[in-house]
């Protein structure tokens, strides 16, 4: 029984919970970025479109730029906030 209670207090889980929240934060940011440019810029009349690298500006920001930006943000998040933990737990198994 003691063992199970220990598992709940496992420090690694506090880290994992934080990292999961970062994931949710990133996806919300990604979604807001995506939808604002897509429908904010793309919702206008086609004749008023501006173009970047030949692509409509809404598409460039919403799709191309987010595909470039998200890996960078993930990289930053991983480097700054993600912690190395052992996935094995021999110490628990031996109790």
């Amino acid at each position: 029984m003691n063992k199970e209670n220990n598992n709940y207090r496992d420090d690694r889980f506090a880290i994992a919970n934080k990292e999961a929240l970062i994931g949710i934060g990133l996806v919300l940011f990604n979604f807001i970025w995506w939808i604002s440019f897509a429908y904010g810029l793309g919702g206008n009349d086609v004749s008023t479109y501006t173009y970047i690298l030949g692509l409509p500006a809404w598409f460039f920001y919403s799709c191309v730029l987010s595909v470039i930006m998200m890996p960078l943000l993930v990289w930053i998040a991983v480097k700054l906030f993600f912690v190395d933990v052992a996935l094995d737990d021999e110490e628990f198994e031996e109790e």
Binding site: R12, A16, A20, G23, L26, V85, L87
Partner: peptide, 9 residues
């Protein structure tokens, strides 16, 4: 990220 380390552990 969501399944994350917790799922693996």
């Amino acid at each position: 990220m969501v399944l994350g380390k917790k799922f693996a552990i």
